[in-house]
Design a binder for these strands. Structure first.
Lengths: 297, 297
DNA sequence: GTACTCGTACTGACGAAGACTCATCGGCTC
DNA sequence: GAGCCGATGAGTCTTCGTCAGTACGAGTAC
């Protein structure tokens, strides 16, 4: 059950004889003969019929060779892929972002990464739960994660900047008149919250724990974009990272007072390769200072 | 570049550490360690990142593992196919028939074969040229062939019976009144002939060489069914094996005088296996004596 | 903070199995 | 009989496997 045996069998089928196959493979004839014999003994089937002029695949032999060819070509592809990865970057980079962090910065960084390594594919998992994020990162499925905090912050945690949280108010809400919204002013408001045990809901609860320990829950959603849209429709108010506000809703958004912000920390998996390092560098170069202003219309 | 290395790498990716992988594979830990190291050295790439808690695939490693999995599973399929072929018949039987021989007998025999070996597929090449037939048979692409004669008749030639040749006349042809048609009566008739150098055309020329050495050629076709149809339309007369006459045209068909018949010889390829032998036996059991009678309406 | 234990992967030495080569034999075709 | 084919046996060499021991990091007790 060695690839060599498959290659020898395929060579015999192609060349038509053991001798010719041995020449193709640059080995002596007995070697090929022995390998095929061993393969047939191991499988308990005659793969080739012996004729005076050479070897010819039997009915089962042909069926076997079809699969063997797949195996050999897949092996070649595997080797070629790995060798290509030695000079160029090839493969799939897996990234996870929590709480919609980097909504504005990620596309730019990923675009630059793709321009530099065209054969590198990138997959982004959005909004995984904190526990799952930890697990994925530990297990090595994740190459890079953007998160707010890491209880057991490893050596490979890099502080990229801070993300300011803002409230989204319904159209016509009276607090839209102010430049900043005091958290105490929102007491009693219904809230568009996030999935239980999600990091976003944790931030919201933490922020409200002084003014409104048991906030009224209007709805729970997974995506920040959905929360903004529902809040705009008047379902309630919500609290999201500033960069997660979709275009067209800026006029419903206000910073809060006292200011709420979370660090954006990039965690690179242990044993990071050039792809992870490159993406980290590109993310660093992005601008993380909150420059967009949300003022009354 | 061994399948074992692929399996080891996949086991490490699945188990998460060399030790656990070694346990899965029922080998000692250093063995797995050495194999992976050898693989990485050979490929010149780091497939796994070493962490204190185990090994984790890198970006290139994941791309490599995807292909490696294809190779390993194809290898398993190949082995399973061959082993299945040891107890049951699995694969594709390739059959060639010349001059439409066995048009009436083949379906029955192939049906019985399929009932006995459900996983055996059969492909039939019809009407190959004599030279190509010989070549296919020699090269081992063919498992069984039905032909009229084999100049270098091998030991594996089996005489199944004889095929009588009949003429097909145009509707309303005066010779339809007779039970048999004398070849001399057809002198000067235009003929629907067959492809140059085909066995069917050879039979026709051989039959006519005394009465009409240079027959008028109305048309040349490849298929006997086409020849019958065209003859029925009045394009000319033709000479085909009796079993090749399609249903509905029997009333235009007459035996010739003196009788023309060709032996039907089944040639089994050297090193024939159970599939070939079984089909040969089934063909023997079919009735090859010409029982259909073509009489004036 | 230090020391200890535990788990991890790596290294080297040695034995066993397998692959390769050479020379030779038997069968068949021409 | 010459020439080609595959099969076989003996000898050499590479490779894979195991066992021992080493090195490194994480977690824990003090």
């Amino acid at each position: 059950m060695s690839l060599r045996q498959y290659e020898y069998a395929l060579a015999i089928a192609e060349a038509g004889s053991v001798t010719a196959a041995a020449e193709l493979l640059h080995v002596a004839q007995p070697s090929v003969s022995q390998q095929i014999r061993g393969l047939e003994r191991e499988l308990g089937v005659e793969l080739f019929a012996r004729t005076p002029t050479g070897l010819v695949p039997t009915v089962v032999g042909r069926a076997f060779l079809r699969e063997a060819e797949v195996a050999v070509s897949a092996s070649r592809r595997a080797r070629a892929t790995a060798r290509a990865g030695a000079v160029e970057l090839v493969g799939e980079l897996v990234v996870a972002v929590q709480m919609g962090f980097g909504t504005r910065q990620l596309p730019g960084a990923l675009g630059a990464l793709r321009r530099r390594f065209p054969r590198l594919e990138v997959t982004v998992f959005e909004e995984p739960s904190s526990a799952e994020l930890e697990r994925l990162c530990r297990r090595g499925v994740l190459d890079l994660a953007l998160m707010a905090a890491c209880e057991r912050s490893p050596a490979d945690a890099h502080h990229l900047g801070d993300e300011e949280f803002v409230v989204v108010l319904a159209a016509g809400h009276r607090q839209l008149a102010a430049d900043r919204v005091g958290l105490s002013e929102l007491e009693g408001e219904p809230w568009v919250r996030f999935d239980r045990d999600s990091a976003l809901d944790g931030v919201l609860l933490n922020v409200l724990r002084n003014n409104d320990p048991t906030p009224t829950t209007a709805a729970r959603v997974s995506q920040t974009a959905t929360a903004v849209r529902w809040a705009a429709q008047g379902l309630g108010v919500t609290l999201v990272p500033a960069s997660a506000v979709p275009h067209g809703h800026e006029y419903l958004v206000r910073p809060v007072f006292p200011a709420v912000s979370q660090p954006v920390i990039a965690v690179v998996r242990p044993g990071a390769g050039p792809a992870e390092t490159a993406l980290l560098e590109l993310l660093r170069k992005e601008t993380w200072t909150e420059s967009a202003s949300f003022s009354p219309a």
